[in-house]
Design a protein around this nucleic acid. Sequence first.
RNA 1: GUGGGUGUAGCUCAACCGGUUAGAGCAUCGGACUGUGGAUCCGAAGGUUGGGGGUUCGAGUCUCCUCACCCACCCCA
Length: 422
Amino acid sequence: MSSERSSVKELAAVKGTHDILPGEVEVWQAVEASVVGMFGRYGYRELRAPVIEHTELFEKSTGETTDVVQKEMYTFIDKGGRSITLRPEYTPSVARAIVEHRLDLLGTPMRYFYIGPMFRYDKPQKGRYRQFHQIDIEVFGEKDPAIDAEIIEMADSMLVSLGVTGTETLVNSVGCRACRPAFSQALREAAGGVKDGLCGDCRRKMETNPLRIFDCKVEACREQAKVFPQITGFLCPECRDHFAGVRRYLDLYGVAYRVEPNLVRGLDYYTKTAFEVVRLDAGQQNAVLGGGRYDDMMKDFGGPDVCGIGFACGLERLIALVSVKPSPRRFVYVVHSGEAARAKAVELARIFRRGGVETLVEFAGRGFKSQFGRAAKLGAAWVLVVGEDEVAKGEFLLKDMATGTQTSGKAEDLLSSLQRPG
RNA sequence: GUGGGUGUAGCUCAACCGGUUAGAGCAUCGGACUGUGGAUCCGAAGGUUGGGGGUUCGAGUCUCCUCACCCACCCCA
């Protein structure tokens, strides 16, 4: 059928999604393993929440006014008539799980991490995908500013251990419900006073998200924004003290950071500490990692009054910066000649694999020459030769492909020589 | 959602002013080659030129629509 032919041809990954192929996936595995190990040393435990949640969860916690909720969610009605959403972020799921399982009764603070896919219906571009992956960490039930600093330090260590350079860590306090409204109002008034000097985008941002005016690219707007009030002057005593504490501990940890009073995050629930790690050389999608404190979220969500703090790190963006090289695979390639040898080759492969050695058996080649050629091409570290002579003798030939050295011996002796490192 | 750019073989690219059967390198597969290496030589396969309409005697080339990707805005990781 012609329709079959064309449908096969048109089959492609969904817009904004990507395959992670062998060769690249090893880098992901190396990064994930490194990160998991590090989080473990800071006392974090993995919590795997479902990829789908009730739509309401995100409306309530992420915030109905955010772009993420308003226009970027993958939402659908399931066969039971429920409104379901593929998670655009992870924090609400953790909050939900804590409430649902009363994890807060197990003792605080609760430290969780997770690595997995998130979904946002954005228009894809560099560093921005519809299915992307995040490393997420969250701490609940610890309000001391030391934990804010510990988390930022952990993020910093994570980047260092992965060999990431050329980034900058930005921190700010976005205040709380007591002090932020006054600031927003003051900012709106300041912007309103020079409304005619602002671009159309900024005039809109005056209403929706006044802090965003600060990172407008239009020169006129930048000029006006220089004299706008900054959050720092509006923080209530509690927020001010907390922020001072965060900075003190960051200094104690020796973390390099810059206070950025204009740093604002896109989700509604942030309070007090907000931070971001950005790459210095990138144009737009420069945020590698971002997070902050969300002291009211759990309570607003209908759970216990437990504060939280955490960050999300974009894996695609992180991996673009890491310099880890996964160690090359070293495997045995078994070549053979004749029916009896073929059976023996299969048997030997099983023995080697049980002994912990990656082993492949040639099935297609004819002569040893072509079998060796294939082994070399695939990058085999060793070739195990199983010919008629070897089968008769019960001793096989193991060739080191790098050095060309060949050693003859019984299967178990050859195996144990491979099990030794090197 | 708005704006710009690009679409030719698996990959990188050719194809004059619109003119014969859309070519090459690399990669793939086969052979030379039945006891030892990514070589060499020979050969094969691989394309509705992203898709659809229009102009034309004739379209990879001009035009319109559409789709995909890339880039930027918005927003974010």
